[in-house]
Amino acid sequence: MVFAEQHNGKIHPVTFELLSKGRELADRKEVELSSVILGHQIREEAKELIYYGADKVFIFDHPTLKEFDSILYKQNIVSLIREEKPEIVLIGATHLGRSLAPRIAAALNTGLTADCIDLQLDEDGELIQVRPAFTGNILAYIKTKTKPVMTTVRYKVFKARERDPMRKGEIIEKEVKVVEDTGTKILGKIPREAVNISDAGVVVAGGRGLRRPDDLKMLEELASLLGGVVGVSRPLVDEGWASKDRQVGFSGNIVKPKLYVAVGISGSPQHLAGMKDSEIVVAINVDPSAPIFNVADYGVVGDLYEVIPKPIEKIKLRKMKL
């Protein structure tokens, strides 16, 4: 069973990734794949869960479920699990998922594995859950003795299947249990403050290789196409081209994005201190001996003004086609 996380009636993409993995596991175990969604006026959206691989979708639709409430969500899901007895329950390891899943597991007195990056089946068809621990220094392989086996799974580790609007499945409306006052209340959403490059998934960083402050716009365009933000080396902050909260390095921010693009940055030890744990590092520099290339996965020796426009064009072109 896959928990479908939704915000304002829109399903979180991690759900589709879980459905894809769930489909694979269900097929190998020759069982059904179900999904559960809670919210208000979500019947239309629920069909998406079938298009992405669910056989059955349970809907809890009620005004009190419009926004997340850990106790209300827990109660309805727990009673559904007690009825349906799924073998495995998958929940996205988002903030919401990681706040909700432990309550469900504790209520069911079952095991829960956190933030998995891989799920495998052993010879006996039992689920092996793989997760990093010790701040990413080790990988633990975990089995659960109790049923259901519950797991939260990290976003963007599995690939969602193609959406198939012809796929058929069953949608089952469940009766909602309402609790008057659960003790928590959402009073409103708060606009996020300034850029936070520490948490960004993609950072495109510019250094002294840039000639004018205006040229940062080019990096901004690339960054936004990649879904990321712009960072800078210290000299650009000293020059007043960018604000301090964009500085990467020892005396700035430590970043660990999936993709770090260093553009016209030499790779001083102080700069490396802020980005060396990035997953993939790309460097663009005219100087083949620049130390940044020592920590790069991919690099281009060349003039950034000739290099950067090309991927920008390429991505734009593809976005137009879609």
Binding site: R208, G209, S266, N285, V286, D287, P288, S289, A290
Partner: peptide
């Protein structure tokens, strides 16, 4: 070749 830098833009560093 790779360990001699004389491109002025790179020398600036």
């Amino acid at each position: 070749d790779d360990w001699v830098v004389n491109n002025p833009e790179a020398v600036k560093s």
